[in-house]
């Protein structure tokens, strides 16, 4: 069984984002990691291959530095990687999906594709759907439980208010992974060393016939979200604090 896991190279969620220019950020001084949701996809893929045999291939569209992020996935047990390089900090989800499709077609289409439920940088929540659309495959997102057997995938996902759906699809299909699916492993030192020797194929967007300038979503501006300057502390006895809090919420803020 061949499984592709789409992994995005994203700033660590604890990193401070410093805006540069109108619509860019300083990416040279911050740490980049595997998009947290993608880790659930890597873990699930590696577990499936450990059980059924086959190989896990990490596919990433990103800057050349994303090589290090792919290595993190290889250290978790993936066999090899494919990096489609881009120049810009952001790429339209449509183009990312086209690049992922083209890279997979070139490498040989997999039996199963994982992505994370979304990426923590652009929070666009759509690349997996577009990839599935371009490949003509079924897609289910926010999957927290999965069984793959006899050419079928059965996925469980939360649909709001704690309700869950159980969805069946034929393979190949695209699964957007989220927390609950598994506990991603922490690679051990020998795994990290082994990952350094694994193969990563590199190609550019242009090599795949994709023009980054053709995106239909233009990032015009990036600005910090205003931070609150600190709480107004409500003092006194518990009775007094609660009374004052309710008054403020009702009368000043009008939110109660």
């Amino acid at each position: 069984m061949k499984i592709c896991v789409c992994v995005k190279h994203v700033p660590d969620t604890a990193a401070t984002i410093k805006i540069e220019g109108d619509a860019g950020f300083k990416d040279s001084e911050i740490k980049f990691v595997v998009n947290p949701y993608d880790e659930y996809g890597i873990e699930e893929a590696v577990k499936l291959v450990e059980k059924n045999g086959g190989e896990v291939v990490i596919v990433t569209v990103g800057k050349p530095e994303a090589d290090a992020t792919i290595r993190s996935g290889l250290a978790m047990g993936a066999e090899r990687g494919i990096l489609v390089t881009t120049d810009g900090q952001f790429l339209d989800a449509t183009l990312t999906a086209k690049a992922l499709k083209a890279a997979m077609e070139k490498d040989g289409l997999p039996d199963l594709i994982f992505t994370g439920k979304g990426s923590v940088d652009t929070e666009a929540f759509q690349t997996q759907y577009r990839l599935a659309g371009y490949l003509g495959l079924p897609v289910v997102n926010e999957v927290s439980k999965l069984t793959v057997d006899s050419g079928k995938a059965v996925a469980e996902l939360e649909v709001g208010g704690g309700d869950k759906q159980v969805i069946e699809m034929n393979l190949p299909c695209v699964i957007g992974a989220t927390k609950g699916l598994n506990e991603p492993r922490y690679p051990k030192f020998p795994d990290i060393m082994k990952a350094k020797k694994k193969k990563i194929d590199q190609m550019s967007l242009a090599d795949l016939g994709i023009d980054a300038a053709t995106g239909a979503v233009i990032l015009e501006k990036l600005e910090p979200v205003p931070e609150r300057s600190g709480a107004k502390m409500i003092e006194g006895s518990v009775e007094d604090q609660v009374t004052e809090l309710i008054r403020v919420l009702k009368e000043d803020e009008k939110v109660l």
Partner: peptide, 10 residues
């Protein structure tokens, strides 16, 4: 964008 740290105008 970036987990609530920035707003992007698209």
């Amino acid at each position: 964008h970036f987990s609530g740290k920035t707003f992007a105008t698209l």
